[in-house]
């Protein structure tokens, strides 16, 4: 029996009628064609699927789509204001904080959530917050630089 999910995605009201057991990640990618949110492991170990729900970061890979009902979803595609990059995106560009770039949307979304929660994070807080994210290119040093730069830009 399909369920009807009504939610806001990147500021747009959306309605999806689908199997309630489908993962939010699959609905974003397959139904809404928002492919910026990535599948990395399906188990919540890598953070590639990170989105913000009501401003808090969530793993879209193991959330059923029903968990997004009546909520406000922000994906990587919703971060720009027109052509203007979000400061966190700017920071990742400035630090060349990507190699293959597949983990990048999740890293950026998590950084956005971090700076909402802790506008002035310590080095230890940055590492702890980001530790649930994997980058297999192991570009961690430049990603850390980008997070620091983004935090600095807010000050």
């Amino acid at each position: 029996m399909d369920a009807t999910i009504t939610f806001t995605v990147n500021g747009q009201p959306r309605t999806v009628t689908t199997d309630p057991q489908r993962r939010l990640l699959d609905v974003l990618r397959e139904d809404l064609q928002l492919t910026g949110t990535k599948y990395g492991c399906g188990d919540g170990y890598c953070g590639a699927c990170t989105v913000l729900i009501d401003g808090k970061r969530e793993r879209a890979c193991h959330l059923p789509v029903t968990a997004a009902d009546k909520r406000d979803i922000l994906t990587i595609e919703g971060l720009c204001q027109g052509d203007k990059l979000h400061p966190v995106q700017e920071a990742f560009m400035a630090e060349n904080a990507f190699q293959c770039g597949y983990c990048t949307p999740g890293m950026i979304m998590s950084t956005v959530a971090l700076l909402k929660e802790k506008p002035n994070p310590s080095e230890a807080q940055i590492r702890e917050w980001m530790n649930g994210h994997l980058c297999r290119c192991c570009g961690y040093p430049k990603i850390l630089n980008a997070v620091r730069r983004a935090a600095q830009a807010r000050r």
Binding site: R29, E30, Q33, L34, T35, G36, T37, K38, Y39, T75, I76, E77, L79, C80, L85, Q89, F92, M93, N96, F98, G101, Y102, T104, P105, I108
Partner: peptide, 27 residues
Amino acid sequence: LPRPNGRDLVTGAHRFPSDIIRPGMLY
């Protein structure tokens, strides 16, 4: 020289192979 398509990586606009969607596509 930074990655020429870096902007598409930070905006999610780049289509990786697994992001390709074709009309009527099945999984």
